[in-house]
Design a binder for these strands. Sequence first.
DNA 1: CGCATGTGCCGAACGTTGTTCGGCCGCGAG
DNA 2: CTCGCGGCCGAACAACGTTCGGCACATGCG
Lengths: 152, 152
Amino acid sequence: MDELDSAIVRELQRDARQSNRDIARKVGVAPSTCLERTRLLRERGVIRGYHADIAPAALNRGVQALVSVQVRPLSRMVIDAFKAFAAGLPEVTAVFVMAGSDDFVIHVGAQDNEHLHAFLVDRLSQRKEIVGFRTSIIFQHLAKHDPEPLPD
Amino acid sequence: MDELDSAIVRELQRDARQSNRDIARKVGVAPSTCLERTRLLRERGVIRGYHADIAPAALNRGVQALVSVQVRPLSRMVIDAFKAFAAGLPEVTAVFVMAGSDDFVIHVGAQDNEHLHAFLVDRLSQRKEIVGFRTSIIFQHLAKHDPEPLPD
DNA sequence: CGCATGTGCCGAACGTTGTTCGGCCGCGAG
DNA sequence: CTCGCGGCCGAACAACGTTCGGCACATGCG
């Protein structure tokens, strides 16, 4: 992970669909070199994939929320089962397994408040391992899609 | 946003770096048609960008946390100022503006616990508008990078 | 010090792709 | 029925991805 790799990664974070030649030119190497570096970055697991960023409203997810969930008992079986369950729900876009007073934080998107409420009542609260959850609506979501690498 | 648009979006969510021809073939139209559709989706703001998904450890973010923050007074000025401040910090990868008992949730990544602690103590707690914050470590982060669109 | 070995980069070549554009088809309005 | 329009197609050309042989530099060993 030298300076060249970092530069390539930065470019792909900024715009994953620009041509390999453009990236090569920006980072100052030949296209073939750039391609080989990129291939190795994928192979090493540094680059995990390339994804389009879609406006939530276009996917019928106009309302988003973070749901903090506590489950009991705190055994691996229960945690893994709930994690798999949550990840499988279509309204769920991300699952955080947490340390602290909340065991999970779930990022949920729904068409509107009514659908969100239905999701919480009909899906989540069904699960017997849940001993409590707290839902907070998201007003805004600023995501940094090209975070700079932190210095060592 | 007809069925063809949805199919293209789905493919670009799955893999943003596959060729336009491949996408066209999978969704069953000519490459030129697919390209034009994609261009319109970008123009309409449905597609907001294409980003590489990078392993956090490679960016020196081995430790991640969600920080719930309360600020006072709850005026637009204070909220906007804190939002801009948080988004500008290199350790911060996402800022959620929330409804509920927490005003913000900040997604933070740091090299290790020591750096995380330093960030919280030296950066966050500097801000006078903060009346309280709570930090929870993230053990795991399952993100769904190709969420299916919800039915209408 | 000279030489052998290996690693990483380059540039050329070729098959593939992106992108544009003219034209065709089907549909709806008049 | 005819006209106009929107959307899709296919061809063409420039640009790109990908592979491969070779070169230069560094490293370690005789």
